[in-house]
């Protein structure tokens, strides 16, 4: 009985989808574009964030102690540095270790010099965007020279700014597209209400409940959103595979996104369905007069 009932309601929804096929096509394709853009930008943002993390590891922050800083001060500052938010790891590099590294890297420069280096902390970050805050906290540690914190400010700032811009552009573009697809789904449902006014009137005359009158329209919105979302997931999957192949062909370093096709399609389909239902409910709310 329950199945029979659902069959009737879904049948009604599909009749409406067939009847408004161009509006259905417009709504689904815009929802696809919006969710493709949002999903794609999210994926890109994830990838760039991972890269930024790698940059953070490659561009460590160094904090130099004043000459002759006592062992207790070094130990104490090392422990405090480990507690700073945004710090992944801290290593105390003694002046001897530092000099050894220097000699290895620049043997010509080092050969006639005595060791001029002080003890230092080598800090790796969890998030490159936090470099400014971490540097400021390191500077306040006991025993650190005035202006003793060094990092490649420009490169790290560039990465952080890039990430922030990507984030803002992604949200703005995605929101615009999402709004457009929402308006199209909304309009498709409003058109359905006009196109189905005769059926709606008959339903009302014979005593169909409000839920029965409205359910086909909600199913219609759900379907439009879900198909749009699933198509967006498929498009993103296709794009990622294409880029992986391109990277492999160019013998560039492997392009690994950690992309998992199924969950993306399912997730975007679900998000699309929820969005479609929301737009339908708005359309139904605004068509209260026709729906009784």
């Amino acid at each position: 009985m329950w199945f029979d009932r659902l069959g009737f309601l879904v049948g009604e929804a599909f009749t409406a989808l067939r009847r408004n096929r161009w509006m259905t096509f417009a709504a689904i394709s815009t929802a696809t574009a919006a969710l493709f853009l949002l999903g794609g930008l999210f994926l890109t943002w994830l990838q760039v964030s991972r890269s930024a993390q790698a940059v953070g590891e490659r561009l460590p922050v160094r904090a130099f102690f004043r000459y002759g800083a006592e062992q207790e001060v070094l130990t104490q500052s090392l422990a405090e540095a480990r507690q700073i938010p945004g710090v992944r790891s801290v290593r105390l590099v003694t002046k001897e270790e530092g000099w050894k590294d220097f000699q290895k890297k620049y043997p010509q420069v080092a050969k006639d010099l005595d060791n001029p280096l002080p003890d230092s902390l080598h800090v790796q970050l969890t998030d490159v965007e936090q470099v400014g805050g971490v540097a400021a906290r390191l500077q306040k540690l006991d025993g650190i020279q005035p202006d003793g914190v060094r990092y490649q400010n420009d490169q790290q700032k560039l990465v952080a700014d890039g990430l922030r811009t990507l984030h803002i552009v992604g949200i703005a573009l995605g929101a615009m597209m999402l709004l457009t697809s929402g308006v199209l789904i909304y309009n498709a449902i409003r058109l359905t209400i006009v196109a189905r006014r005769r059926e709606i009137r008959i339903m009302q005359l014979v005593g169909a409940t409000r839920a029965t009158v409205r359910a086909p329209m909600v199913i219609e919105g759900l379907f439009q959103g879900a198909i749009g979302g699933a198509l967006a997931g498929a498009l993103i999957g296709g794009s990622v595979l294409g880029m992986q192949r391109l990277a492999a062909n160019l013998s560039a370093q492997s392009f690994q996104t950690g992309f998992n096709f199924g969950p993306w399609m399912f997730g975007l389909g679900l998000a699309g369905a929820a969005y479609g239902v929301l737009c339908s409910l708005f359309a139904l709310r605004d068509s209260g007069r026709q729906l009784g």
Binding site: R5, F8, R201, L205, G207
Partner: peptide, 22 residues
Amino acid sequence: ALLPNKTVWENVGYAMRAIGKG
């Protein structure tokens, strides 16, 4: 208030389905 693309049978059947008849 008949549905133009449904037969006589379907018109009555549609109304019955709308009020939950199997």
